[in-house]
Structures are given as structure tokens and as C-alpha cells.
Design a binder for these strands. Structure first.
Lengths: 127, 127
DNA sequence: ATTTGAAGATTACGCTCGTAATCCTTTGCC
DNA sequence: GGCAAAGGATTACGAGCGTAATCTTCAAAT
């Protein structure tokens, strides 16, 4: 039985983002990096502990403190969240999702060019 | 002050789906349509009441019972959820989302053709 | 008129989440 | 060697959620 992919909450994901940007980091550094959230230091420590419990991060002792690093990767997390949206909201199919964006999101020309390039790349890769 | 867009939970969205497929419907019909969930009838009634409280559905009296119909549209809900994913997980940009799918989801040729058609359509509309 | 039964309304209950406060421990300082 | 401070661990607490059970009401049947 391996480790199931931990599902993390919104607040937790903001802590993960700090570690995805750079790791390992001490809690003090993490707190500093999250100054703009207005969260209390205690709050952030709680979130770190919950992430430890979920095995989304690991803590390595460094003298009297810990250095934290992510176990769950940003890619894994993006996958989970994307798949969840796809399944819950769009019946598991990608095209309706993009169709939705095409109707309701403003896509820049750059976006469109990027999408087209992506599709070409996918197409080439697939065959 | 208009009505803010109600945010509904996962379980609630399954009830909404029944009404999006067809409305208006009595609670009895809704319960029947959700038989595959294994939910107790009481559970479904609770969800209906919560949706009423959130003004995501309306109930019109019909004799001794109510007929329910959606106030929140499926499109509105899909918009909310998509935007939420985009902002929370992909920094608000569409291309990284599709890039993600290109790497991690298996897209069929049909998918790809569909996407290409969509992009062409978007492109034509945009300019 | 009394009972019963269906539909809806109210209340419940344990869990997770956001948001901390409090408690404990280890270590440097005087 | 005793004490304060930093860091971590434990506990808290209300709101929302999944999941119902209980209570109320009104109409239909007897």
C-alpha cells in the first residue's frame, strides 16, 4: 500500500506554493514569504503541521529547527485539481472545458497563438 | 444590491445536475433520479433545502408539494468553477492549463480535432 | 372525527477548514 | 544552574459539509 496522493486545501496550497518556489526552507522563511496573506505565524505553523500529517511535505531537522520541503509536487497537485474540475464539472471531457473558456473567458491573441502551438505539439507527439 | 452568485458544494451540484437536465421536477422525481448515488431520501431533501437557502433553486407550490427549478444555471456554475481553478491553480492563465493537459491527459484524435476547430472558431470571432 | 402517511421543516452530529491561542521543550544568556 | 525566548506540538472553536433522524403538518382514507 503506497501513499495515497494527499489532497490539500486552499490555504495549504498557498504554503505549498512557497515551497514549490524554493525549498528547503525553515518555518521562519515560510512565514516571511507569506507576509502578504496577513496570516498569523501560528496559523502558518498549523498549516505546515497539517501538510506534514498529509505527507505533502517533509521536515528535516536542522539544528533546533526543521527545514521543510515538498513531497507533493506542484505538477501532481495541478493534475489532481484539473482532473477534479474536469470530472466534476465537465463530465471528464477536455473539449467542453475549452469551449466554455472560449465563450466566457477573454483569450488574448497571445493565448490563442499559444494554444494553437500546443495543439500542434500534442498532435505531433500523439501519432 | 443584487443576488450574489451562490456557491454550491459538490453534493449540491449533483442535485443541480438533475434539475439542469430537466426542470421543473418534484422532490420525488429528484430522489428517483439520484438513486445511483445511494443517498437517503432525507439527505436529498436536505440538499434541496440548502440550495433553496442559497437561492440556487426555486420551489413553486404544486398542490401539496413543490416543483423545483434551478436559478443558478449550469453555465454560471461552470464559469465559477473554471475561474476558481484557473486562479487558484494556474495563476489565472489559460495556456498553462492546457499545457498541463497536453502533458498529463491522454487526448484522443477526436479531442484534438475538436480543440483545433474550437481555436479556429475563437480566432475568427476575436478579430 | 381519528388515524396514518407523505412531504416538508427542523435539528443533529462528527469531520474538515480557517484561524489561532496555549502548552511544552530545548538552548542560550546571565 | 535558573530563566526567558524561539520553535514546535497540542488544543480550540465556530462555520460549512456530508449525511441523516426526528418533528410537524395537512390531506386522504376509514
Amino acid at each position: 500500500m503506497g501513499s495515497a496522493i494527499p489532497s490539500i486545501t486552499d490555504a495549504e496550497s498557498q504554503v505549498m506554493t512557497v515551497l514549490w518556489d524554493q525549498a528547503p526552507r525553515s518555518s521562519e522563511e515560510i512565514v516571511a514569504a507569506l507576509a502578504d496573506t496577513g496570516w498569523h505565524e501560528k496559523t502558518i505553523r498549523t498549516l505546515l503541521n497539517r501538510l506534514l500529517g498529509k505527507q505533502a511535505v517533509a521536515a528535516d531537522r536542522d539544528g533546533r529547527r526543521y527545514l521543510y520541503r515538498p513531497l507533493l509536487s506542484r505538477e501532481q497537485w495541478q493534475s489532481q485539481e484539473s482532473r477534479s474540475l474536469l470530472d466534476r464539472v465537465f463530465g471528464g471531457r477536455v473539449a467542453p472545458l475549452l469551449a466554455h473558456f472560449s465563450r466566457h473567458e477573454k483569450l488574448s491573441e497571445k493565448d490563442i497563438a499559444e494554444l494553437r502551438a500546443l495543439i500542434d505539439a500534442i498532435d505531433r507527439k500523439e501519432r
